[in-house]
């Protein structure tokens, strides 16, 4: 899973104009930038921040879905959910490695997540309250992630682009699997159908917010677009998502919770009602129902695991010493 438009990146940079021009020329020629290449500090900082946020989102995203592993309603669903949550952890690992090529360690990034300095996708500050949420997350949240990530496969930074190619394949599998869960519920008993509709009602707007503020209010987009870290604006991606998703909901006999959601023949896409940005900022700034619990759980896992990590280091050290002594 991936976060929306980057929260709070600082692309400012103070290299010479000549250096920046040469760098921009490489970007414009669609050359991939590799970790050992010279790059503007602002470019490096933006990427560390974005890849870090992305990695954290994968890791924190394991929690709301993990919340239903022990309660999955069939063994087949339990196995599929385990595999999905494991995939997300794999994405996190892969992304931390990509960020590490830019000179920041996984430990540093983890500390920043726990201290609240680093952000993660706000969508995971919403709770999973029913089994239907597991389907809806796959359908909408992984679906939105794909919209965001497909353009990232062409990101100018090589390691990130390559990570995204692999990740996107798995995300689209998650999206189909989630949709299939919702479809099963929508065609199930009246209780199951109600469960699916309630879930869509709760996740629809947060999913739209995943693409970030409207273009007119998005502070850091211009520089990211110029550096080809980002290729489409927040509103463009959101529109693509709505256009793809509304017919899917209709097909299931479910209704998106937006009275203003209507097909607009002229623009060839759906119109939507106003997004409640005060809700978005409330949750981004820590006011969602699960913000504190997510960080609490990640910190608890990390702190409770400290003795395990220490033991692994100590054991490796002992081994090394014994081997040296034997030689």
């Amino acid at each position: 899973m991936y976060s929306q438009g980057l929260i709070g990146a600082d692309g400012s940079t103070d290299e010479s104009q000549d250096f920046l021009d040469r760098f921009q020329a490489r970007i414009d020629a669609e050359e991939k930038i590799e970790p050992t290449d010279a790059m503007p500090e602002g470019y490096r900082r933006t990427l560390v921040r974005q890849i870090g946020q992305h990695a954290h989102s994968e890791i924190v995203g394991m929690l709301p879905e993990g919340n239903w592993i022990t309660r999955a309603p069939t063994l087949r669903r339990k196995a599929a959910l385990l595999a999905k949550v494991q995939d997300e952890g794999g994405h996190g690992l892969y992304l931390y490695s990509a960020a590490e090529t830019l000179g920041v360690s996984r430990e540093e990034m983890t500390e920043e997540l726990h201290s609240g300095k680093a952000k993660y996708s706000s969508i995971f500050n919403y709770p999973t309250l029913s089994w239907a949420d597991i389907g809806t997350i796959g359908w909408l949240v992984d679906g939105a992630a794909i919209m965001n990530q497909i353009p990232l496969c062409r990101c100018s930074f090589g390691p990130y682009a390559r990570a995204m190619i692999r990740v996107c394949k798995e995300e689209s599998f998650h999206q189909r699997q989630g949709y299939e869960i919702v479809m099963t519920l929508a065609r199930g008993t009246p209780e199951q159908k109600a469960m699916a509709q309630d879930s869509l009602n709760r996740w629809w707007w947060p999913a739209l917010m995943m693409f970030g503020p409207h273009d007119a209010d998005s502070e850091h987009s211009d520089q990211s677009m110029k550096w080809k870290i980002k290729r489409f604006s927040n509103d463009e991606l959101r529109q693509k998502f709505i256009d793809a998703t509304v017919p899917q909901a209709e097909f299931l006999g479910l209704t998106v919770p937006d009275a203003d959601c209507k097909w607009n023949e002229e623009k060839g896409g759906y119109d939507h009602g106003p997004i409640d940005w005060s809700e978005f900022w409330r949750v981004v700034k820590g006011g969602g129902v699960m913000n504190r619990d997510r960080i609490r759980d990640r910190k608890a896992a990390w702190e409770k695991g400290e003795w395990v990590r220490d033991a692994a280091l100590a054991h490796a050290e002992k081994r090394r010493a014994r081997k040296m002594a034997a030689e």
């Binding site: 394991m62 592993i69 952890g89 690992l93």
Partner: peptide, 20 residues
């Protein structure tokens, strides 16, 4: 599977679901 997302290190967050 109860460990998933709560393991002492990320590598174990991947290994636990594998075994489960």
């Amino acid at each position: 599977s109860e460990w998933c997302g709560h393991a002492p290190l990320l590598e174990e967050d991947l290994a636990m679901p594998n075994m489960a």
